[in-house]
């Protein structure tokens, strides 16, 4: 069953076509890679799927529900979590608070008078352990290294208990140990039946991790299928690898 379906998605920016009648589907519980040269529309697509920008035309269907307009505050409601190509953590807050804020009471009046309890802290500490930042919990997020900030962003996504995780270049600029940790997390998510959409330039990782790969070029779908088949296609090599 497909958890995400996009039909004829289109997006312009000041007359420039960023997404051009793009249609694809993502099966539930799989890892799907999205690849393409710079400017091919990968991040625009992620922004549309997480509700950060509206589409111009087309349709998004999430778990069978067709959405006319997905807004950013709908993302969590529909079980979508994301990370960013340019890391966005809450810089002025501690590592612990960056994660605690995710498990905050949704009712504003409740949040006004409630403190985070042991249950919340236990959940956050478990995630901190998973992303290897437990000893950094009191540090301000802005003092973390680039890789640690990426891990913190992933930790924040994990705490949303999403069904779909959109990871925008999570391995870029990371030390091998950190990359290994993220690979493990992605495998664990799949084992838990979660869906991962991975924007990535590293073809080895795409081959290793992904069940399906979507290749984009100039906002259009160039190819779709299993990595071992798609990455051999001549048009993909020409467009993406410049071969």
């Amino acid at each position: 069953m497909n958890i995400i379906e996009a039909k004829n998605l289109t997006k312009h920016f000041d007359g420039v076509l960023a997404i051009d009648r793009l249609s694809f589907s993502v099966a539930n519980g799989t890892i799907t890679g999205i690849i393409g040269p710079n400017g091919s529309g990968k991040t625009t697509l992620t922004n549309i799927l997480s509700g950060m920008i509206p589409k111009d035309n087309g349709m998004i269907i999430i778990d069978g529900v067709a959405l006319e307009r997905l807004k950013s505050y709908d993302a969590r409601r529909y079980g979508i979590a994301r990370t960013f190509q340019n890391v966005r953590v809450f810089e002025q807050m501690s590592v612990l608070d960056n994660l605690l804020v995710v498990v905050t009471e949704r009712n504003v009046w409740g949040a006004l008078f409630e403190r985070h309890g042991e249950y919340h802290r236990a959940r956050v500490l478990e995630v901190l352990e998973r992303i290897g930042l437990r000893d950094k919990q009191t540090a301000l997020a802005r003092t973390l290294s680039y890789g640690q900030r990426k891990l913190l962003e992933i930790g924040r996504a994990l705490l949303t208990d999403a069904r779909v995780y959109l990871f925008d270049e999570p391995f870029a600029g990371l030390f091998p140990e950190m990359a290994k940790l993220i690979v493990t997390i992605i495998h664990e998510l799949k084992a838990d039946g979660k869906t991962v959409i991975l924007i990535e330039h590293n073809m080895e990782l795409i081959r290793e991790l992904c069940d399906t790969v979507i290749v984009m070029d100039s906002g259009r779908l160039l190819a779709e299928g299993a990595p071992k088949n798609v990455l051999k296609k001549r048009e993909v090599l020409e467009a993406y690898l410049g071969e």
Partner: peptide, 29 residues
């Protein structure tokens, strides 16, 4: 500093768009 509301306020102050994506009711806050 001691309430969930306070953390939500700080998150919005830091990055309202991300706060919205992680499910904070930014309008109500």
């Amino acid at each position: 500093n001691k309430t969930m509301f306070g953390k939500a306020v700080k998150a919005i102050a830091d990055d309202e768009e991300v706060a919205r994506i992680i499910g904070i009711q930014t309008d109500s806050v």
